[in-house]
Design a protein around this nucleic acid. Structure first.
Lengths: 236, 236
DNA sequence: CGGTGTGAAAGTTTTCACAGCG
DNA sequence: CGCTGTGAAAACTTTCACACCG
């Protein structure tokens, strides 16, 4: 009964199925980032070929990736930037805003509290926790640092679903356990360890030293595997 | 003529060929990180099955990955942790230390200057640059902030080969151009833009908002695609 | 004409399964 | 026996190429 034809299906009915390769989703974020830059500079439409070129991908790859989620293009024209942005944010879940809990307010944690880039993608750090009693009670970026003991209650009261772990490696698993116990659904982990988590908790790891290590390898085995003409892209 | 047999070939003669999948190299870094934790806790040997379980990979995958670089195991025993660590550091290029240049010493840049995790993997931030004249001359973490004008000379004098871009999005391409002109070989880019780079310059992008966006997607389409029993792992 | 959406082909990565070794 | 190293099979991802559309 549901029409399958009309002009662009706009948002389409979300993945409909769970099997979208992870690498496709990571490219989606890059498409979205680029599209946002394009509208900011006044561009109205873009073809898969142009968008791919900006990121170092083929036109076919861009179309296939988008094809996982619906039909968004206009033959002969390309994609309307504003429509595509809206569709991708629907898919990625960032058309509504997310409250995030931060555990660990050291060096890096404080820098992340001040990072403006989160807000632009609709993420807000809504609570911050630290084990160090000398830090608890201090205000950083307008946020009162709370003791770990308040973590579970705060997360539930504020309906926080995502957490960020920014504690030293030795404390990371404990922080994760607390977040999981509080009912968190996903964790970004900046500590250089692999967390043991129940399978229903989503997990993204960011290890800053590993990023440099990957570069070290690429540079060391530098038989210059020239890829695209002038646009290189390596996503960790 | 070269013997192919002996006990573990130890380091083997490096990739010998350029075709090691990027995803294999990123797992190598995870193996190394875990192995370092294991020796620190006194473990001498480990099997592909144990190592994989700790990271959420299969035993076969661990063995295949290592197989790209040589033969490191002892049948019936597994791998000797210390030997394997040394071999992996040879492969990744982190048995010698790397000097890194940082461009942009804001919030995040200062936090990265203080991050201890780089040193542990043999990376040292050896020079820091900023365009802001009020920052130039200040000392952060024992490092004098230099003006951008000194970038090329300093990089050449100190033999720096890797760079880190920690400037706002609008300034990132300019920073990259300066680093490239100074002869840098690889760049870690923390600005949320895709850089246009010549193909001989290696490039790793880290976008903090995108990491959260990936989580948002995973949580949103949470039909809980339970993977490993208790160990989840998602590398961006 | 310029461009999308998409099956089918090509290429790549993961898993399987087993010979061989200490 | 326990475990590695590795071909061969299976699964997955990317590229190709073309019908179709405005």
């Amino acid at each position: 009964m549901t029409d399958q034809r009309p002009h662009p299906t706009h948002a389409a009915d979300l993945p409909s199925d769970a099997s979208v390769p992870k690498v496709v989703v990571s490219r989606l974020s890059l498409y979205l980032r680029e599209l946002q830059r394009l509208v900011a500079s006044g561009q109205q439409t873009i073809s898969s070929n142009q968008l791919g070129a900006l990121l170092g991908f083929s036109d076919a790859q861009v179309r296939k990736d988008l094809g996982f989620f619906g039909q968004f293009g206009y033959p002969g024209v390309g994609y309307r930037c504003d429509e595509l942005i809206r569709a991708m944010r629907d898919i990625l879940g960032t058309n509504h805003s997310w409250n995030v809990a931060m555990v660990g307010v050291g060096n890096l944690g404080q820098a992340l509290l001040g990072y403006r880039g989160f807000g632009r993608q609709n993420f807000a750090i809504a609570a911050a926790f630290d084990a160090d009693p000398t830090k608890v009670g201090q205000t950083v970026q307008g946020l009162r640092i709370q003791p770990l003991e308040e973590l579970a209650a705060t997360i539930r009261e504020q309906g926080i679903r995502l957490g960020m772990i920014v504690v030293p490696a030795e404390r990371a698993q404990e922080a994760a356990d607390r977040l999981v116990a509080a009912g968190i659904e996903g964790i970004v982990n900046f500590a250089p360890v692999t967390l043991a988590l129940p399978p229903h908790v989503q997990n993204v790891g960011v290890d800053l030293a590993i990023e440099l290590e990957q570069l070290s390898f690429a540079v060391t085995s530098k038989l210059a595997k020239a890829t695209a003409e002038s646009t290189g892209q390596v996503e960790p």
